[in-house]
Design a protein around this nucleic acid. Structure first.
Lengths: 249, 249
DNA sequence: CGTGCTTACGAACAGCGTTCGAGAGGCGTA
DNA sequence: TACGCCTCTCGAACGCTGTTCGTAAGCACG
């Protein structure tokens, strides 16, 4: 065993000076920039989720340390804002059509939800942030345009935009948290877990929890999170339509 | 200086054995228990907010270290669940009255919101948690009872409970985050900040953001968070009523 | 060839949740 | 009474976090 040498490894041979200087001069990687950092953050978010995104992890993703990021980004909070605005860039809107305004609002929220779902963890960063980055403003403007096609009173349109967004973000947020709480589980695992919940509810004493037991089935086996989201969205849109002169035949 | 002695301090005199044993025997503080820990956590939450609640801080509150808590509580997550259920204990429900079911649902959500607001940070811990502690079950049961007084289809009642809760919790969550982001600011400071927001929106180019600029006023000066919450709640309740045979005259 | 100036980044700080293992106190049994 | 056991306590430590600081290196300009 003393004669056996590792085939491709020279033990502790000092690096020749010319190589050293060449290596140091050309780092052979793209230079750091705010854009590159945001892009990398999105990638980390996709692979490791919200909790997996740390400044060190992000630095490693870019082949450097955490401290280097602070030259381009004030702190993690600002980074998240930039990432959010970057994601907002891929939300888009229909041309407002007064005859289809309710459906257009519905589709806009669906689209927003899909974008948020496509970028895990983003919803968690978004709650409580005012979306006033460049893309954020574009989104709010577009959303307001669609809402105003319904001839709603101004304060109704303004509040509805706010409240519908809150609901949509919160909905994805909740899914995201549940998903990441269950470790590396798939959607199927979550359905198994939902089944256990249902069984537990059904096992409760009917005398104490009559309504809970009676509603156990519809509570848990009803089209998953999408069905739930659509239902809540429908509630709000039915209510919203009742404010529009267009929907009072 | 060598003769000057600190008035009330004897340097390194060994503690007499009797005192030692007496001190050790009676630690002069309430013994640790899960209940006491949850209570202390609520207190820390109230004074220091969600981010201020750490195991070390909580240990200090109880006159001990962080490690001592783990004998009574599995981890911070379980602790939060216990705190949540503890808070749930103070939510209550009216006797279901089919003639007033919509108002009863509204009041129930209002009450829930008030309880969450009274315990800062709780809403942040609640999102994504399934409220199946003892008090949680009681709440869901009571809420379902009120909802079913509206003669709603089963799946509508079940989903509505879920979606209304999500909206309410998310609403408080958002407020809470905004509040703690602005440091130790009061409600008035937040109104100042809202005013700045409004001015900023109004300063945007009208050609690019016509709807945003037009709605700047109703967006920001409309009864504060309470008005906003009430509006969203009303949207959902109007939609929900449209599912009830009782509200189709 | 200096001399600034901007960027990069290892090391360190304070804080976090959690684990480990030594110690102390109470209690049942010999 | 004395011993062993068993539970509760908790200082120290581990690995993680966001962030700051001081040093070092590269480049532009006089």
């Amino acid at each position: 065993m003393a004669n056996a040498q590792a085939p491709n490894e020279v033990p502790d041979a000092p690096v020749p000076p010319w190589e050293r200087s060449r290596k140091a001069k050309t780092p052979a990687r793209a230079p750091l920039s705010q854009e590159a950092i945001v892009e990398a953050a999105l990638h980390v978010l996709e692979t490791d989720g919200y909790d997996g995104l740390s400044m060190r992890r992000l630095g490693a993703e870019l082949g450097t340390g955490a401290a280097s990021l602070y030259a381009h980004v004030a702190n993690k909070d600002e980074l998240l804002k930039l990432v959010i605005d970057r994601v907002f860039g891929s939300v888009d809107f229909p041309e407002p059509d007064p005859d289809r305004w309710v459906e257009q609002v519905r589709e806009t929220m669906r689209g927003t939800r899909r974008v948020l779902q496509a970028h895990p963890g983003i919803a968690r960063a978004m709650l409580g942030q005012v979306p006033f980055g460049p893309s954020g403003l574009r989104i709010v403007e577009g959303f307001m345009a669609v809402l105003r096609a319904g001839d709603l009173p101004d304060h109704v349109a303004a509040w509805a935009g706010d409240v519908l967004s809150l609901y949509t973000v919160a909905s994805v947020f909740e899914e995201d948290i549940r998903f990441s709480q269950h470790g590396d589980s798939s959607r199927e695992d979550i359905e198994v877990w939902a089944g256990q919940m249902k069984d537990y509810i059904k096992s409760l004493p009917v005398a104490v929890f009559p309504n809970l037991v009676a509603l156990a089935d519809p509570m848990f086996e009803s089209g998953g999170p999408d069905g739930r989201f659509e239902f809540g969205l429908d509630l709000m849109l039915r209510g919203l339509a009742s404010f529009s002169p267009r929907n009072k035949p």
